[in-house]
Design a binder for these strands. Structure first.
Lengths: 146, 146
DNA sequence: CGTTGTTAGTTACAAAACCAACAGTTAACA
DNA sequence: TGTTAACTGTTGGTTTTGTAACTAACAACG
């Protein structure tokens, strides 16, 4: 029984994107995990603060599309490790501004350099035009609707 | 403090791939979840059996790169729902052949058609050449090393 | 003011993933 | 053969995530 079917799983875009994403994250994950004991959510928050500077959890959520509970937990961990400080907005006391400490900034810069090198290494597997097109398509796919 | 930095997170490939993968999985996830109460691991196992026919958990692991515990649990769920049957190899009693039941096959075909339509919908956002290149690059990235 | 609704962020509980140790079976080879 | 190593698949305990309800603060409008 069980008539084999010719659906091409290896080319099904959601599956393929997942496989590529997982594979391409592996080496970088190893670094932020082994070197700083971080989770994916944590380096993402760290990077947002490192790149854009002082911002609130809400703003991180808008940029990263992470759910607020993930952010809340990542922020708690980073604060515990003294990688960031929290500071309530006096005008609107629901808001809390997050900012990297010098230690957090050092960790960010270290990982940023690793990320840059790793990205180049991946990009080097293709021509410049190809990589540019890949990034453009991925941005569009990531962008959601339409 | 907190000097803003110009690292381009939105173009960092592992990040970008994850965002694209997540976004592109959403609609399809909704279908297999709402319609069959399945998890990602479960539809993957279902598809492997639907496409390649009778095979063992080990073989599914090799093709999908899923860890054996995920497969074991997905198989248990699918067996419980009567979507597949298990049959020990008499020659090597460590092996167990998995095979879709008629109900499992129906579910597979239903989801496969959804997947095909969904894939076309995504592909339609680009030219044929672009999509072909995208798939090729993703396959290479997914393929691991080098 | 005061009631109702909205927002930022946290917490509690359940679901799922991860990892390591396990049972049962087969292979290797002294 | 007998003992050890290797392999397939499962289970247990912990970590991480997801979902929903919650607190505290502000806004809107009578």
């Amino acid at each position: 029984m069980s008539i084999p079917d010719d659906f091409d799983l290896q080319n099904f875009l959601p599956y393929l994107l997942n496989q590529a994403a997982e594979e391409s994250s592996l080496s970088f994950q190893k670094v932020y995990k082994d070197r700083y004991g971080m989770l994916r959510t944590e380096w993402r928050v760290l990077f947002h603060l490192g790149i854009y500077g002082r911002m609130t959890a809400k703003q991180i959520g808008e940029r990263s599309k992470m759910h607020k509970t993930k952010i809340s937990r990542a922020v708690a961990k980073l604060a515990e490790r003294r990688f960031l400080t929290r500071q309530k907005d006096e005008a609107d006391r629901r808001l809390e501004y997050l900012e990297l400490t010098p230690a957090g900034l050092r960790a960010y810069r270290d990982l940023r350099d690793v990320a840059r090198a790793y990205d180049s290494q991946i990009a080097a597997r293709f021509s410049e035009d190809e990589v540019a097109l890949l990034r453009r398509m991925l941005r569009q796919l990531a962008g959601g609707a339409r």
